[in-house]
């Protein structure tokens, strides 16, 4: 069962995902990401700390989000990419395409967001 929670910091949406990202859960994640993109948020920070499995549909969902954010220069930053999820990113050579950082604090720095 997937759990998706969102938080907002200075027009950036942090998306915390818990569970496996697969053919069944990807559409739910897509819905959340595209709803926020439709609001023209400054960017999305995707936290994969509690994701131990992601299949091609999950990667494709992130690619589509990146493409849509690029249309208005919104940002997409992914944090906590590890283990099998990291392997899938590397295999797809998308580790070169996405901005991937270690944690939320680094993601906010990349987005030039100052947190008091």
């Amino acid at each position: 069962m997937i759990k998706i929670e969102t938080r907002e910091i200075n027009r950036y949406i942090i998306v915390d995902i818990k569970g496996d990202v697969d053919l069944y859960s990807s559409p739910q994640i897509r819905k959340v990401l595209l709803e926020n993109i439709a609001k023209k948020v400054s960017g999305l920070i995707i936290n994969l700390k509690s994701v131990s499995y992601m299949d091609s549909s999950g990667i494709a969902t992130l690619v589509e989000s990146l493409q849509r954010l690029n249309e208005y220069r919104g940002k997409l930053v992914i944090t906590h990419v590890q283990g099998a999820v990291k392997d899938v990113f590397e295999l797809s050579r998308l580790d070169k395409v996405f901005t991937i950082v270690d944690n939320e604090s680094d993601a906010l720095k990349v987005c030039n967001v100052e947190v008091n």
Partner: peptide, 19 residues
Amino acid sequence: HTHLEEPTIQIMTRMKLDQ
């Protein structure tokens, strides 16, 4: 066999062909 949206399927197809 899935309920994925067409844009997701299109991207997955290109990924698989790339692989």
